[in-house]
Nucleic acid binder design. Structure first.
Lengths: 320, 320
DNA sequence: CAAGTTTGATAGCCTCGATCTATGGCTAAG
DNA sequence: CTTAGCCATAGATCGAGGCTATCAAACTTG
């Protein structure tokens, strides 16, 4: 026996009846006639072999199975709408609002490079930026307040997919007269006993740098936690200690003639991976992949190592 | 402009092509002719306005958008199959295998009452029982190795739905000659300084009883952790201390003439809630509701307080 | 290099099912 | 008992989706 499968039209009819609890009004809302709706629901019940709706002339109620199936039908119809939206987004890629959250240790160094490129190549896109720490960004991402987050990977957040973008080394910033100043392959162990200045709690870069310090045997100057890398670098210039910076920050934070020197570590060089994160259910994956390409294209050429582009054939190109 | 929506047939066609990477074979697998399949995919691309498949005479590839949409289409088709299964299950309620996990502090006291009732009223059902601690049960439930778990609530497990069944009070079991023996409204504070025997780590009832002890100021005899309530009661009879039992265990564990006495607490009486847990995506919710009714019907009449039946109209009755 | 083979697209026809209008039957209210 | 409201049924119509036959393109092979 061949089992007839439910039809999308039938599912829409059922959901409509469930919503309105009234065949006539549901039919009007679905722009079909009442008998059409009636027979659609009846056909669904026939193919499923179960009564879904209790009809009396006075009221329309769902049976227990009916409730179950209505819930699933809503899911199906929503997913079909999603498919249409995915296609629509792909037809007009990278347009409209994108709510992007960025962590504070990336934003000031990457955005000045990204924004002009993006505006030039995708004038239709409007970035709505938000700067916050990782935990905030992930919460807002899951809650739907953000479309996309630019942060350090991995986060192992269920339901969130990540696109790796680049790896950036950590470098050592010291006063110019410091013994380690300007070194080119400083071993981690050279940090032992040094006073290292770090960000305040909640910054992921604080945790990453702290790991390095622990391994190296350095100690944190805990009384001097700063709110930004900028402040920390000022403090280093003031002779209060030394600090680690992610490579991308060096150009902006360590200027000439400020009495500062940058040293690089010997292998294995401590580093972190930066990438994009989005809800796995997002209908705009194609957009996010394109944006990832733009970020990679906007990267400073030297110190940052691009992550390989993961998948598939990037068939979608700019429209126009 | 009215947008034509994708059809289930079209989605099936697309998924088939994605699976086989070959129109002819996909058509055979779907039991349609090759031109039909071809035109279905073409129609889908037309309604979505996006190219989904790269066709050459030599190979068939998916575009980026195509991959996205295939993934979602699989979800849609799976959900539709689920709907059919929900209906099928409702047509033949409570039949077939049910893999039920039960925690050790419930199983020996509830199952002897439940099993005969169940066999009598639903002879077609076959329970495959498994006794394990909460964490194991929940892991197996999520992994699909179990259909259903009978344990203490709440667990706040994402993706897992819980049906409350009954609340059971904790009672105090002491040697017959103990000062608290047989009391009828013992305040928790009376436990202060007493030696209480508890289960070994991992049992949820251990944690629950330990909470009571902490609040009451009792101390655990940590050198005597037991693997079962049965063992603990033996130890109490041997004068090694006293213990807490969930009410349902009293009848089985505390017999006559074994030198044991049962005392009840004053209000607020410590208690725990027992219920069923299942994957929120399960297609057999109707079955689980029915089984919950059977558990309630099988309950010992006196000490356990039924939880209110939550929802809906239990339209489904026994078939036959 | 030409013929053959493989494979997906197109054309034309047909069938079945979804939809419509018209109507019937049931229930609750007055 | 009548009336109004509401869902089910009947019969007609039309289009989506199916099939067979054929074409066009590309790779293979003697």
């Amino acid at each position: 026996m061949a089992k007839p499968q439910p039809t999308l039209t039938q599912l829409r009819a059922l959901v409509g009846v469930a919503d309105h609890r009234h065949f006539g009004r549901a039919a009007a809302a679905l722009h079909v006639s009442q008998p059409t709706l009636s027979s659609a629901v009846a056909a669904l019940e026939r193919t499923l072999g179960v009564q879904l709706v209790e009809r009396t002339t006075r009221s329309v109620l769902l049976t227990g199975v009916g409730e179950q199936i209505v819930a699933r039908a809503r899911g199906v119809l929503g997913a079909v709408d999603d498919i249409a939206e995915v296609a629509m987004r792909a037809r007009a890629p990278l347009t409209g609002d994108i709510r992007l959250g960025v962590i504070p240790t990336v934003a000031p160094y990457l955005l000045p490079r990204l924004l002009p490129t993006l505006r030039g190549r995708w004038p239709q896109v409007r970035l709505r930026l938000r700067e916050a720490q990782t935990s905030t960004l992930l919460a807002e991402l899951r809650g739907g307040a953000l479309d996309l987050a630019l942060l350090a990977l991995p986060n192992d957040e269920p339901g969130v997919t990540e696109i790796p973008l680049y790896d950036e080394d950590f470098v050592l910033v010291t006063p110019a007269e410091h013994p380690l100043a300007g070194g080119s392959a400083v071993p981690l162990a050279a940090l032992a006993g040094q006073d290292v200045l770090l960000l305040e709690d909640g910054h992921c870069f604080r945790a990453q740098a702290l790991d390095v310090c622990r391994e190296a045997g350095a100690r944190e100057r805990a009384t001097l936690r700063a709110a930004s890398l900028s402040t920390i670098v000022q403090m280093v210039a003031g002779g209060l200690g030394l600090t680690l910076l992610p490579a991308a920050a060096v150009g902006v934070e360590v200027g000439e003639g400020r009495g500062l020197a940058v040293a690089t570590f010997s292998r294995p060089v401590p580093h972190r991976r930066i990438g994009l994160a989005y809800r796995a259910t997002s209908a705009r994956v194609v957009d996010w992949d394109l944006l990832a390409q733009e970020v990679r294209a906007a990267l400073p050429g030297t110190d940052l190592e691009l992550c390989p582009v993961p998948v598939g054939n990037p068939k979608v190109t700019r429209s126009g």
